[in-house]
Design a protein around this nucleic acid. Sequence first.
DNA 1: TATATCGATATACTTTTGTATAGTGACAAC
DNA 2: GTTGTCACTATACAAAAGTATATCGATATA
Lengths: 120, 120
Amino acid sequence: MKSTISFKEAKACPIQFVLAVNDTLNVISGKWKLPIIGSLLFEKRRFTDIQRNIPKITPRMLSKELKDLEINGMVKRTVYDTTPIMVEYELTESGKLLSDVLDKMLEWGLQHREATIAKN
Amino acid sequence: MKSTISFKEAKACPIQFVLAVNDTLNVISGKWKLPIIGSLLFEKRRFTDIQRNIPKITPRMLSKELKDLEINGMVKRTVYDTTPIMVEYELTESGKLLSDVLDKMLEWGLQHREATIAKN
DNA sequence: TATATCGATATACTTTTGTATAGTGACAAC
DNA sequence: GTTGTCACTATACAAAAGTATATCGATATA
């Protein structure tokens, strides 16, 4: 019995393919996930720091999204017992690897914009 | 004055980066976009055909999502004046290129699953 | 004593997204 | 003339996602 699926196997089965791609999609879906991930891509940051970096986000949403990302193994949260309290958020190894995916999305997004502009 | 942005430029500016990646994300976000794209990846299909391929989708959602995909330049719709009427949906060139992105998402999704299972 | 910082949480609300169910019009077959 | 196919649309509703605004407790500073 096998607990994991290979790339080859997933590609061969449309259902497995959609399910596995959807796993990735769920991690980055929503209005604020990308801005937060982007904010953490090059450096660890603190709560208020991220908030300042993403001007329109409310603390409620930032708190909720960071929790989601932590649960999904994208972000690591570290509390330092200083005064005032200090909480650091950083991407996990897996989280950092997501930049490969984002680069591909960027590439496609730009080519797609070109392609659709060209048709008008 | 330049109307388009290069990969290099977008990567260098966090704001442009997030905006451009978000363009791609928007195209594939939602409950039914991936199943529909998956259904069209290897062959053109007709409305009822897609519906049968994605058992739980309602015609309302299928119709709406196909319109979205068409507007976004992902899908081409062709009407044949036969009886009964025949409408074919197929991915555009740009739509087909999305499979590169989906492959990367699949790859990351599988490695991420491994990585997070390993930690438990 | 009053005000500010940090990292949040609480409550109420609006907007967006998706579901359920029924029905349309043109035709064709039985 | 009833039933079926195709590609949808209409209406009403439920659930999920996001917003607005106020507040918390611990501690420090003016």
